[in-house]
Simulated scan of single mutants.
Amino acid sequence: MEWLKTFSTDYANAVTAAIALIALVITAVTLYYLRREYRAKYRPYVVPVVNVEPLDRGEGEIVYVVSVRPFNVGPHPCFVMMTAVQLQIGDEVYETPSHKGWSLIGQSGAAYTFPVGHINQNGISAVREGRYRLNRIEVRFRLHSKSVDDTHKQDQQFIFEVLAQNPPLAVIRPEWVSDTRP
C-alpha cells in the first residue's frame, strides 16, 4: 500500500504544479492583452488642419496666411511637434523654421497653431497663369505625436494642396507623400 500512498502524493503535486503553470500562462496572456488595450486607449489621435486665412495689408492688398493646427480627436491629451515645414508656390520652396519643442494639446482641439507662411497675389496669379513647371501650391510637413507617458510615438508626413480659388481651400493629398518631388 505504500506505493499507492506515494503515487497519490506525487500525482497531487503534479496536478497542482500543472494547474499553477496554466494559471501563470493565463495571467501572462491577460496582462499582454490588457497592456495592448491600455496603449491603444491612451495613444494620440492627431489630425492636422491647414488653415488659409485672408489678411488685408491695406491698399487693397490681400495676403493669405497659411498655418497648421493639429487637432487631438482622442480622449486624452498628447504632445505634438512639427518639423520639415515647407510652403511651395509653383517651383519655389519656402522653408519655415521647425519648432523643436513639444507642444501639449488637450483633447477636443488644439492649443497651438504652427505658422507656415503666406501667399500673396503675385504667387496666386503666377500659378493660375502657368508660369511655373509645377503649377500648384503645396504645404508639406512632418507631424510627430506622442502620448503623455511616452509609451506611444507616431511620425507622419503630410502634403496639402492649396486650391487658388476664392476663398483658398487646403485639400490633403496622401497620394503625393510617396511621390518624389522634382
Rank of each mutant, 00 (worst) to 15 (best):
E37A: 14
A23R: 08
S147T: 08
S108H: 09
P168S: 07
D149E: 12
V116G: 01
P115Y: 03
G117E: 06
N120G: 11
V177K: 08
H152A: 10
S145Y: 00
Q107R: 11
P75K: 07
H118R: 07
E61G: 00
A12G: 07
P70H: 02
D155L: 08
S67K: 03
V63D: 01
Y11A: 15
V85N: 01
V73L: 09
E95G: 02
N120I: 05
Y64H: 14
K153F: 15
V85D: 01
E95V: 09
Y33T: 11
Y38F: 13
R43V: 01
N120Y: 05
A164H: 04
F141S: 03
Y112W: 12
L163D: 09
T16H: 10
H99P: 00
R136I: 00
G90I: 03
P44R: 02
Y45W: 10
Q88L: 00
Y132S: 05
I172V: 14
R181L: 15
V15K: 15
V46T: 07
E129R: 14
Y132H: 12
A20S: 15
V47Q: 07
L169C: 07
W176M: 14
I105L: 04
Q157S: 10
V171A: 10
V63M: 04
Y42M: 08
G60W: 03
M82Q: 04
R128N: 11
V93P: 00
V47M: 07
Q107W: 01
P168C: 06
Y45I: 11
V15G: 04
K153H: 14
W3I: 10
P44G: 05
I159S: 03
F141R: 02
D179M: 12
P174C: 06
R69F: 07
Y42G: 02
Y132L: 06
Y45A: 06
H99N: 12
P54M: 08
G60D: 05
P54R: 07
L87C: 05
F158W: 14
L134M: 09
I172R: 10
N122R: 12
I89E: 04
P48A: 05
P115H: 04
L34Q: 14
D179S: 11
W3Y: 11
E92M: 07
V127F: 04
D56A: 07
P48C: 06
Q107A: 11
N135L: 09
A12K: 13
I137E: 02
R173K: 15
V73R: 09
I19L: 15
M1E: 13
I26W: 11
T113R: 03
M81E: 07
Y112S: 03
Q157H: 11
P75C: 00
G74H: 03
V148F: 08
N122I: 03
R57K: 13
R57P: 01
K5Q: 14
R181S: 10
G117D: 06
G58S: 08
A40I: 02
C78T: 02
Y94V: 10
L34P: 00
G60P: 02
K146E: 08
V148N: 00
A23V: 13
A28G: 11
Y11I: 05
A110S: 15
L24A: 15
G109H: 04
V116Q: 03
E175W: 10
